[in-house]
Nucleic acid binder design. Structure first.
Lengths: 336, 336
DNA sequence: TTGTAAGCGTTATCAT
DNA sequence: ATGATAACGCTTACAA
């Protein structure tokens, strides 16, 4: 079955295709009656202007592309919800792609989106090294991009970020204030800026409170990472009094293993996570964690992007840093 | 900055645009040397064939659209991962859109995807009523669609489903075998086929074991729904001995409220959920639940779609029903 | 107010 | 093996 095109409508009414086109694009002069007639018969015929053809000529699509590493952890989904809200309101449709934490796939994703002529991109980087030149090239071609969550200084684009240093400092301080000493930090994936910043916060907290530096263990962001580290600590009989993990998955993985081995949380080991996951509230005991303003991140990114789309050519890249919250729960309460 | 087009490459090498085009589409005759030369200079110039133009003429895009209600619960994300795996392997890119449980947005999503000329669609319906005529129309236009999770009989398309009846029966039987009586079923969202099927399974289990019919409470799929129902039961002092909830969120919501009021799970109330969420393993106590083969659902849907794309015109809609698993955990263990 | 025709960046059908 | 040229479905000067 063939698609109904502008020609079919034109033929049916014995008008030119430009007239039909005009009926669908208010900005031109056209008699009200003809327009109504055209719109009506178009509807009857089931005609919808083909946006592919439209894109080809107008070079814009009213589509926005979002690329995220995954959406299993409700962190990215919530951000996308926030972004979608704003973008829908402005008449944009949102195309989402996931990179699966692979920079090659991320690259393909972005290319696909660009190929589809999205008007702009919202991206959370998977790698801080691999695609930088490519992104710079896109930016040079005046394709609006906003990065969030993970970004790279050398890419001159707008960014929506979180102050990992500050909140890691707060999270660690919280443990210190509760009276815990001998705190171990389980770091995130190696080499990531946010990993480094969370680590810096951890260290700064110790300095600020004139404590000897805390122990640092390279861990990772997955539950298995936390499980592995906990097992190693148990095997080596080096049980810390408290743990500050670089994210919730890792914290929960460690917590589970400790629990299985009979350790009580927080009585034997207190634990604090980072980047509030849906799980934190529901684990036993519930997990103290730093919450990021996910919805706000999405909205802010979208607004920044829209601004950039509207002032294409002469806009100044902005970096917005949003605030979070420390949700104190049972895993780190003060023990008597 | 202007986009580099086929013309730029042609001009640079003093060949016709058709030759350049041929270099990019193996199927035509072209001298190896010219092709290599063209490909190389194209690379240097940063030229990539514009897929929009390509789509316009070829009427295909090697893009597949997936529409889901949400991706906060890891259920849909895992399915998409499975689908993406298969589709990437076959050279397709995957565009994802979320309907937010609104059939209007779902409609817009599908329209956007069709407008972008995706070669096929994988959809989980949000409503079983609202867009049916539209989908039938698309199918008539030979647009390949596979529905999964939620589908409607009257739409003649391929479907990948789960046997809700059977697994609700198993789940309920599990409670019965553990010795629990006075079981209450918290149903899912009203009017959905899967809600009805889970309910039927619950009832059938009672019949099969010659028990008086269990109590049924209309609940919903959200955590708040479960919380509300639990609160009502407590207020009315109608504490059941066991609960079979239509999904995990609802089960967990109810469990939390009961726990807050001092009830022990499963000693006072046993609970079984449905459709394994990531949470189930981590709640306290851990939640017995029916697990759907999410990854398999995604892969199967993708394969069905690819088959359909390749045999466009004459294919027979298939319905594939996949198997699940009951993960027995602490919330429903036998009490002494 | 409406029609004509050029053009968006490709591919595909002819010739050559 | 390569080049002209029509076509894909639409928008938009320009002409009428």
């Amino acid at each position: 079955m063939k698609h109904i095109t502008i020609k079919d409508v034109a033929k049916k009414l014995n008008v030119s295709i430009s007239t039909v086109s005009r009926a669908f694009n208010d900005k031109y002069d056209i008699k009200k009656e003809t327009r109504d007639l055209i719109l009506q018969t178009a509807q009857e015929l089931g005609y919808r202007p083909n946006p592919i053809a439209r894109k080809l000529i107008q070079q814009r699509s009213f589509n926005i592309g979002i690329v995220v590493p995954e959406f299993e952890n409700s962190f990215f989904p919530q951000i996308m919800l926030g972004a979608q809200e704003v973008l829908h309101n402005k008449g944009y449709q949102v195309l989402i792609m996931q990179s699966n934490y692979s920079w090659e796939i991320e690259r393909k994703n972005v290319e696909t989106l660009v190929d589809n002529m999205v008007d702009g991109l919202i991206i959370s980087l998977t790698s801080e090294k691999q695609n930088n030149e490519y992104y710079k090239e896109l930016l040079k071609q005046d394709i609006p991009i906003v990065f969030f969550n993970r970004a790279v200084d050398e890419i001159p684009a707008s960014k929506v970020l979180f102050d990992d240093f500050k909140w890691a400092l707060f999270a660690t301080e919280h443990l210190i204030m509760q009276g815990y000493r001998d705190i171990v930090h389980l770091t995130g994936t190696h080499n990531l800026t946010l990993t480094k910043n969370r680590l810096r916060g951890f260290e700064q907290a110790h300095r600020k409170h004139k404590l000897p530096p805390g122990k640092i263990i390279s861990c990772g962001f997955k539950m298995e990472d936390g499980e592995r580290i906990a097992q190693e600590l148990i095997d080596r009989n080096e049980i810390p009094r408290a743990i500050f993990a670089a994210n919730d998955s890792c914290a929960i993985g460690a917590m589970n293993v400790f629990k299985q081995h009979g350790y009580k949380i927080p009585n034997d080991i207190a634990i604090v996570g980072f980047t509030e996951s849906k799980l934190a509230k529901h684990t036993y005991p519930s997990l103290t964690s730093v919450e990021q303003p996910t919805r706000d991140i999405g909205q802010t990114s979208a607004n920044l992007l829209l601004e950039q789309i509207e002032n294409k050519g002469f806009f100044v890249p902005q970096t917005i840093i949003l605030n979070g919250r420390l949700n104190v729960r049972d895993s780190s309460i003060k023990i008597k």
